[in-house]
């Protein structure tokens, strides 16, 4: 195996590895600002659900209990 072949394969492997480093391949962010959540955002509750939760809380009072 001559030098050129080795170089070719090395280059090919290197390219392949680099390709695997694309941001979309990872869930993790590359750049981080300390103290800031940079993951996937969560859904928020709508007002109806919040109102429902508020009403439901009263059940824990336990009626006449």
């Amino acid at each position: 195996m001559n030098m050129r072949t080795i170089r070719f394969f090395s280059l090919a492997i290197l390219l392949g590895l680099l390709a695997g480093c694309q941001e979309r391949e990872s869930e993790n962010p590359f750049l981080k600002e300390k103290g800031v959540y940079s993951g996937k955002p969560d859904e928020t509750l709508n007002d109806d659900t919040r109102e429902q939760l508020r009403r439901r809380m009263n059940i824990q009072r336990g009626g006449s209990i």
């Binding site: 103290g35 959540y37 969560d42 928020t44």
Partner: peptide
């Protein structure tokens, strides 16, 4: 890694 977040609630 700042994996925590606090919801609106």
């Amino acid at each position: 890694v700042d994996c925590f977040y606090q919801s609106a609630e």
